[in-house]
Design a protein around this nucleic acid. Sequence first.
DNA 1: AAGTCAGACAACCGCGAATCT
DNA 2: CAGATTCGCGGTTGTCTGACT
Length: 562
Amino acid sequence: MTCKRDDSDDEMLPTDQAESPLINESSGGSSGGGSVLKKGPWTSAEDAILVDYVKKHGEGNWNAVQKHSGLFRCGKSCRLRWANHLRPNLRKGAFTAEEEQVIIELHAKMGNKWARMAAHVSLPGRTDNEIKNYWNTRIKRRQRAGLPLYPPEVNVQAFQEGQHDQNTGGVDGEDRGQHDPLQSNGYDIPDVIFDNLSANQGILPYVPELPDISVSNMLLKGVGSSPYCTLPPMLPRQKRFRESTDLFHGSSGSVGNGFHSFEQFRDDTCHKVARSIGLSSPLDSDPTTKNSQSFDVIQGSHSLSNGNSSASEPTYGALKLELPSLQYPETDLGSWGTSLPRPLLESVDAFIQSPPPSGAFEADCSSPRNSGLLDALLHESKTLRSVKNRSSDKSSNSSSATPGDKADSSTLNICETEWEDCGDPISPLGHSATSLFSEHTPISACGSSLDEQPPAETFTGIAVKSEPVDPASTLDMEKETTTRLNFSRPDVLLASDWLQQSSGYIKEQSIMSDAIATLLGDDLATDYKHLASGTSISSQGWGLNSCPWNNMPAVCQMSDRP
DNA sequence: AAGTCAGACAACCGCGAATCT
DNA sequence: CAGATTCGCGGTTGTCTGACT
């Protein structure tokens, strides 16, 4: 839209400025020295000069504009002015409903990639600045209203697109580019798209709108802890994102958006694990696999990234705590139109900054930035021990399976059942293992953004099915579980993908267990290794349940991605 | 009518990538 | 190949305006 200020300027500066456009500046222009560049609003006279210059010389070489046109504006400012206000074919005015929808959808896919969004064919004449401002305003508005950032349909659509893309495209961003409609436009849509999607899903309280989803206490807690997840938009920290991208290979772009703290954790701990493992991540072993999403999810934590968390990638600016604000909506299970009581922003912030010592296990676990993860691991170890003892019979079945046996996936359910059955009353958290897992969802949320959208199945029995494992049906069960989990839980996908696509890797998990055990120390290591190998499901079950344990290997994989 | 607040918008700033020398 | 320059992007800030109290 035309700058109101400019309009007023136009009115206020009719002819005078035409004569001395550069001097009659209220905001402090150059005094004729020429060395001082003017800042502030552009006048119509300046606009005219710039337009004239561009007509004669074309776009580009903006620094030359200041030199040759007489404008006391830096090239940067000239470029911006031209791009946002003066160039032809600009479409000013309020966004139409269609445009808004497009923006929402694009943002769900791209995160804070304003320039790409602006370049999208569906937004002709729109500038990145316009879109950005619109979005930021929208965020504020929705946050204030306690609404999710994205409408459910957008979320689902984006996810489906992502899935379709994943199914048809390669793992690498380059490959996917061929399938991504957005990329068809020449845009290089990074994996972040899916990451963001994941993040969005996690963040967005769509859950309640999904079928078969019960807003159980678990769910509430799990989602409620979403504050640890951020929306792509907030995720920002482009810097981080880029660094991460470099680190993990461009195709895995979203990684960087994750929590900074998480990244730190990843960088430190995961690398340790990876090194001790002596091998690269499963992904490394098979770059052609399509696990990217799974890992991206965690990255997505870039989740959250784009914490608005984003931010973009997701952010974590670390401690920027922008997330909470964005997460707000996420905590709102009522979501999108409905309103459920949600914690005050202040309380959320406070919670994040100083999680309660007890009853906030999810917080601790979900936030690598504190010792929560380790604490969670410790507690898990204890819990597992308890469970192990109480379900030795069942575990025997599971343990009979070799860690490397793909059939482990079947034991997964059993184990999960175990978890469900073997709540840990002693848990400081006072939650059953299942609920504990559920609450850990946010954890992976740290690592994966999707968690916030705990699949109903996960909480309603699918993931924790207790039916006897029928070897013949194991595969189907795996498929079902994977599929269903895939939809709503990228983090789950991570685990399921391991099962389905990385059967070989499963064997490596024993190695991974050793590595993790190494990190945990003798005492815990024993428990962990025992569980990981004996009940095999443990690690995978955790993974499916977003247990902190699972995050470790997952993170390692991420960090090791080529 | 004055003050406050939020929305909307424009512009600036910092950073990184790309390109040039 | 390294340094310098240019360009572009995203985040943030500042200002204006209208609604509300």
